[in-house]
Design a binder for these strands. Sequence first.
DNA 1: CTGAAAGCGCTAACAG
DNA 2: CTGTTAGCGCTTTCAG
Lengths: 347, 347
Amino acid sequence: MAARLNLEEIGRRAGVSRSTVSRVVNGEPNVSAKTKRKVEAVIAATGFRPHAAARSLASRQTGVIGLIIPSEAGTLFNDPYFGRLILGASDAMNGLDLTLALFVFGEEIDESAIISRVVNPGLVDGVIVTATRMADPLIDHLRDAHMPFVVIGRPDSPHAVYSVDADNRGGARSAALHFAQLGRQRPALIAPPSNTSAGVDRRSGFLDGLAEAGLSIDGRVREGDWTEGAGRSAMAELLASSPDAVFVGSDRMAVGALQAIREANLQCPQDVAVVSFDGIIPADMVVPRLTSVAQPVREVGERAVSLLKAVLDGDVTKAESVVFPTELVIRETCGAALAATETGTAS
Amino acid sequence: MAARLNLEEIGRRAGVSRSTVSRVVNGEPNVSAKTKRKVEAVIAATGFRPHAAARSLASRQTGVIGLIIPSEAGTLFNDPYFGRLILGASDAMNGLDLTLALFVFGEEIDESAIISRVVNPGLVDGVIVTATRMADPLIDHLRDAHMPFVVIGRPDSPHAVYSVDADNRGGARSAALHFAQLGRQRPALIAPPSNTSAGVDRRSGFLDGLAEAGLSIDGRVREGDWTEGAGRSAMAELLASSPDAVFVGSDRMAVGALQAIREANLQCPQDVAVVSFDGIIPADMVVPRLTSVAQPVREVGERAVSLLKAVLDGDVTKAESVVFPTELVIRETCGAALAATETGTAS
DNA sequence: CTGAAAGCGCTAACAG
DNA sequence: CTGTTAGCGCTTTCAG
């Protein structure tokens, strides 16, 4: 029977040495066209694929990139955000012939367990870290272990790092300006957790935008943990101070906020306009359709991969922060169409 | 400076041979307590971790399990189903000290590309395949390549395979019986795609349940591609034949169906009762709250991992199909509370 | 219970 | 352009 398929065996069948086969497999230039053809024929005929572990051991590169997602009690996985992110990362990796290793850690497992699993030599070449808290200790550990990494978010680290993020501040600011333009007078805010960079940035961006427009928020601020439930109870509380507009820091919380508005027998957008951040809930999912500051999650995932790849290849050596612009997608909850009609701007 | 950390070096520092260190690392029994302690001390002091690739090469086991998710244009990733599944699989793997490699393939990449990437020797020990179509060619390819695998779903394969699935038929049947019990007379169905086992089973289970209860469906059947939009348009069509109840084959389609009902100025559950399948959309997400046949997605993911692990360890050798029961979770859209009130059953 | 020795399949100088 | 020669770090017989 056929011997186990390896470089040696392929070489034997093609009448060349193991090294030559290796060169063909790796697309190195210094192989004669004729030899190359012969070897490729044998490879095609046998369906040979080089052994990944052997290759990793010899080359000290695994071709595997880790994606670390700390999932707090599974909450995060109900958010379409991560699906999009994974899809983007995955696409980029398929194109680069890289393999994605996914590390999801619940709260019950401690930080050091994460590290020791991920920083296993010979397992991954580098990692992408998501959902980072401000000053995430994970980042320091990764650095101590000399593991190349890229952060998704805006890390608050004393050291410079590679990172990819959406323009949370700018996006939130645009929501504030939009409210101002629509003539809303009593804006409110439901911010994401302030121990995350997204939470901090979306909050400050919105407040800055209001200040710019000369609007004040007068304590109409609440914070929620990304979920529908949090959005609903935060909104219920805010309604006591009669806001006429609310910027909600995530799509999921906005869904809850809409429910609270409905339960109070108020109308959105007539009584309270709503703009959310994310733009990733399917538009048909809620009524009225959600106006939101959309961030390009998929692109963020893709870019994180290409940036890490560049770091691994030594193509980029200085800290680099990529920031993607957001886009205010106007649908129904902000009441823009309404305002347009009233002022006679619309046809 | 410290030499590169490996078995040899740890052995040198502990005054033993490389083999002994290997035995300690792998928890083999035949090591004296004293030697073991000494070696462990050195390991703890140095933070040594064995090189994954080297270990894989020598032992012919990678400790990595692949999860294959064919994502059609990203549609599937908007569904919380996959997040849950990944979470379950991931949990199980963390417990078994296994690493998860995620393979997401869009439609643009063909089947053989999937195979050649996944079946790379020395990369993964086995794979879990999801979202399988009926008679999925992927399965045959996996078998041809001698790659151990477990299917999530009910594969329609001429060969026996290992699989894990939810009781789609039984769950759908229970929805039918529930409608009958509530006195609904004109049931309708929005089924998932019939080229998937879930689609086939949910459809037949529902129809069987109706037949059992003596209800007929009279052509009030549509099919949708899992999305909100599909549910909405299917429901809009069905309304022409005045159904008083509809079983929708997925949570997302049910969200769309609810919208269509509202847009037709009908009330749910008064005019049309709705029961969906999945039970994974956060309960607070829609109003009225969705009654649905819940499937234990996380458990399915966990079980797929433990089954594959057993297969890899040779603990199970005959084809095995694990089927998880579903649970009808009654909330508001089915109108059970309503019916109870009318008949005086409720307080 | 412990050590020595032989690979696992591949890459990477180094010759030629 | 091609072959030879050493390893990469670990597991795994086989002796002792």
